[in-house]
């Protein structure tokens, strides 16, 4: 099976139903994508699959074959932060931080299609991402800041 993750091609030999999450974490050692629930209730495992934010715990390896996958590591790096990551740092969103890879990937996807979301739109898109620390007020603010950055405002 062949996957492209963060522009690197990998050939993997796994069961067709091994979730992409575990392919990333345990087979490829790409651990910024987190395991939280395994049933698409928390969003910590969110990655971009051919440009669409998806819960990687729900994507069988077979369904990811041939796809282009971007993880949090591929969005930006500490040295070259993506606009969403910059906003996350500016607002100091993270507490435990465990959900934030998924939050950031979801927010980046939202802003990709809607760079100037209303509060209601943010709430509709981001409510599938659980944060046990309750950082929602800052996530909301950071999404707006990131949108402004992306719009060049």
């Amino acid at each position: 099976m062949r996957l492209t993750v963060n522009r690197v091609q990998y050939d993997i030999d796994v069961e067709p139903d091994m979730p992409l999450l575990w392919v990333l974490r345990d087979e490829l050692g790409i651990t910024g994508t987190k395991y939280g629930c395994g049933i698409a209730q928390c969003g910590a495992c969110t990655v971009h699959l051919d440009g669409l934010a998806v819960r990687s715990c729900q994507i069988p390896a077979q369904a990811a074959e041939g796809s282009k996958i971007v993880t949090i590591e591929g969005l930006g790096t500490p040295e070259a932060l993506h606009a969403v990551q910059q906003a996350w740092v500016e607002h100091q969103v993270a507490q435990c931080g465990y959900c934030q890879s998924g939050q950031i990937m979801q927010a980046a996807s939202l802003l990709d299609t809607n760079p100037d979301p209303t509060d209601e739109e943010i709430d509709r898109v981001m409510s599938g991402n659980l944060c046990r620390c309750g950082t929602y007020p800052r996530i909301r603010a950071a999404v707006k800041t990131a949108g402004a950055k992306l719009r060049g405002a």
Binding site: P16, D17, A40, T46, L52, A53, V54, R55, Q58, I59, P60, Q62, A63, Q106, E121, R124, V125, S127, G128
Partner: peptide, 13 residues
């Protein structure tokens, strides 16, 4: 908003 496919994969498995 949030596509159904974000959580509901397309797979015949």
């Amino acid at each position: 908003f949030l596509p159904c496919q974000t959580c509901h994969a397309t797979s015949a498995l």
